[in-house]
Design a binder for these strands. Structure first.
Lengths: 105, 105
DNA sequence: TTCGATTTTCGATGAATAACGAACATAATA
DNA sequence: TATTATGTTCGTTATTCATCGAAAATCGAA
């Protein structure tokens, strides 16, 4: 049961976070997780195959935005609360704008 | 005196804006322009050559973030105020965080 | 231990990106 | 008109990125 690597958020730069959010698939993932409910990979309905989804999850994880916890054959994904300490209000602001301008998948 | 093309901001997506801001050089350009003073290209002190700077300015312009006005042999750059209508508070929020976490070039 | 479910990793590919120097375009000025 | 100043465009290179399918890894259950 190897848990994936989560970088310390203090080492993460703003440009990396913005870059991670600058993709529609990833923004959709983050928007889905914003309700606080942990979800497994399979719970996302996105127009990409599994391996591509896995790639996007890795990008989000290495940008300090999401956390993955392995549990059996599944992984549970959540937003990382520490991101709020590092960049207060950023995620909420972006998600609010995303919800207004696109129908939030 | 050909003026460069500025896309209508209504056609610009959030992911494109975030993508444009997800580069240190471009974020620095935007931060410099945030005081409202128009500046020419040469007014930026950045670790890139002219042509690369021109490239980054084009990316920012096509993302609806900055406007260029040609005047003689120079161009004057400003932030586009309409961006605030499309994505209220976004630029200010990002710049505030950028100012806290990096010494703002 | 064998099978099925879930996710990651690998390898490949095509597109996009950042960077540079050189050449070009344009406008003000000598 | 020739020169200078300022930016842009072009061609190139190297890197990164998004995507896919196939294979591998991991774990639970039969």
């Amino acid at each position: 049961m190897k848990q994936p690597h989560h970088p310390p958020i203090d080492g993460i730069g703003l440009t990396e976070v913005l870059g991670a959010l600058s993709d529609p698939v990833r923004l959709s993932i983050v928007a889905t997780l914003a309700d606080g409910e942990p979800r497994s990979c399979g719970a996302f309905e996105l127009p990409v195959v599994k391996s591509t989804l896995s790639h996007h999850l890795k990008v989000l994880r290495e940008a300090g935005i999401i956390a993955s916890r392995m549990d059996g054959t599944r992984c549970f994904l959540t937003l990382r609360p520490e991101l709020e300490d590092r960049f207060p209000g950023l995620l909420a602001h972006v998600l609010r704008l995303a919800g207004q301008t696109s129908p939030a998948a």
